[in-house]
């Protein structure tokens, strides 16, 4: 092999090793933040609806602290190489998106958009060829959101909130319908979307249980009147 080529290639390959090392560090940082948020958000299942706001408030500063990580990653990735390195942070970013989306839903009842999520995590549009939220990562975040909401529908009832399941049902069905419009390949996203069916079913059953009992209650109250 051409001697110059050997050195040249070696240099290029070692550069990559270095970039990888540095990205790894940032991702590990991001991971820690994400794990703390997930740890806090787990508590929604035992928190009555009216005391949720302070819990959500404690997540927001951590979301904001992700801005630094985003900026660091954007500066590490060479121009045009977004897709080359993104696997490294995909998992963490998806969970960050999930956290942002859950906070949004519980605060406002609405679905976070991709650009809102980018903003919350401090990801600038001009970094698109180096660091951004890929559509699939955003969608993965939404699926995690639905997974969590199906659990929440169950636990809300335990906490005595019979309205939450209905709201969740409407919200999740809309997301589900949205996903149905997409032509997903046979990959993880597809498989996870397929599994949403079970979450949806679970939520439907909760709504069913609640409606069935309301029926009796309303008849009862109707009877009483």
């Amino acid at each position: 092999m051409d001697a110059m080529d050997v050195d040249y290639l070696n240099e290029l390959l070692e550069q990559d090793v270095e970039i990888r090392e540095k990205i790894k560090q940032q991702v590990s940082d991001l991971d820690k933040k994400v794990r703390v948020m997930v740890g806090i958000l787990i508590k929604i299942h035992s928190t009555p609806t009216d005391t949720l706001p302070p819990l959500l408030d404690s997540v927001r500063p951590i979301l904001r602290s992700c801005h630094d990580t985003s900026a660091a990653l954007a500066s590490l990735v060479p121009p045009n190489q977004f897709w080359r390195w993104k696997e490294m942070w995909s998992n963490s970013l998806r969970t960050a998106v999930y956290s942002a989306a859950l906070v949004e839903y519980l605060s406002s009842g609405s679905l976070i958009t991709l650009s809102q999520a980018s903003e919350v995590l401090g990801i600038k549009e001009e970094w698109a060829d180096r660091f951004s939220i890929a559509v699939e990562d955003y969608l993965h975040g939404l699926i995690s959101l639905v997974n969590e909401l199906s659990r929440l529908a169950v636990n809300a009832v335990t906490l005595g909130d019979y309205e939450a399941p209905l709201r969740i049902s409407v919200f999740v069905k809309d997301i589900f319908a949205g996903f149905s419009m997409l032509n997903l390949k046979n990959d993880t996203l597809r498989r996870r979307f397929d599994s949403l069916k079970y979450d949806l079913k679970k939520i439907e059953e909760v709504v069913y249980d609640v409606s069935l009992r309301k029926l009796t209650d309303s008849t009862k109250s109707a009877v009483r009147k």
Partner: peptide
């Protein structure tokens, strides 16, 4: 479906 606009965009992108 209320999220139609959001997902329509993705539909185009993913199909493309």
């Amino acid at each position: 479906m209320s999220f139609q606009p959001i997902f329509s965009q993705f539909q185009l992108e993913l199909d493309d």
